[in-house]
Amino acid sequence: MNDPIIRIPVGSWAESAVDWLTSTFSGLFAFIKTVLGSAYEGLDQILTAPPFWVVVLVLAGLAWWVKSWKMALGTVIGLVLIQTMNQWDNAMHTLALVLIATVIALAIAVPVGILAARNDAVSRVIRPVLDLMQTLPALVYLVPMVLIFLTGAVPGLVATIIFAMAPGVRFTELGIRQVDREVVEAGEAFGASSGRILRQIQLPLATRTIMAGVNQVIMLALSMVVIAGFVGAAGLGSDVTRALSSINIGLGFEAGLAVVILAVYLDRVTSALGTRSAVAKAQTAAS
């Protein structure tokens, strides 16, 4: 009834594009797979090998350092709950995935954001690309990733990196563009090079906004690694997937609750980091 008059085969174009990518860049993809795979394995080892209470203490100590003993106490309670739900190993797999994905996403996003802030043309080109990356349904990323990287942690990681990167770029660009024009001019007026202005003026003054971006990147990464359970990435996602396919309410709830606890922990730590910077303190003192 609503058959298209002309069928534009966007789908098959995408397919052939992925085919072409897979065959042309197979070497590159193999390299990415090795690097990401071993990075994940390594971090996962670090998090799962020691007894759980050691990891709990380290994470609680971090919370204490960035914020307060209250947050440390909350961390202990939350993480012990995860352990007693028998979700500890899964949670650590997920945490490893999130951290690796976040670090790589930021390593790409922050420089791109800086470039976009300094060059209007770059900014104009990047914006629609970011829109696409952020709004394309998360599951859609996974299909070509499985074709390229098969199953396991790596396709989930790559999909997560792409999905989570956008706010990192946006917030970095916004943060740098928001820096008081006059302060940047002051740097220029006293003869500072643009590298020095970036390092000593723009980045420090943009830290708060960039940290808000980091926070967003982590949150998006966490939501995506759970979805990555569909393609066989280890962690809480795989239990969620299992619970979904077997209608197991108990398992689903436990895994879901563990995700929430991790999310709250990561969110509080990164937002506390944002307000800890010297600039943020100076800005708070000024207001």
Binding site: D180, E182, V183, E185, A186, E188, A189, F190, G191, A282
Partner: peptide
């Protein structure tokens, strides 16, 4: 130009333009 700005001419700004950190 950067050399000139370092050695010959300096500037005071309306809103001070100090580095807050």
């Amino acid at each position: 130009l950067r050399e000139i700005r370092r050695t010959k001419v300096s500037m005071v700004f309306q809103h001070f333009a100090l580095l807050p950190h």
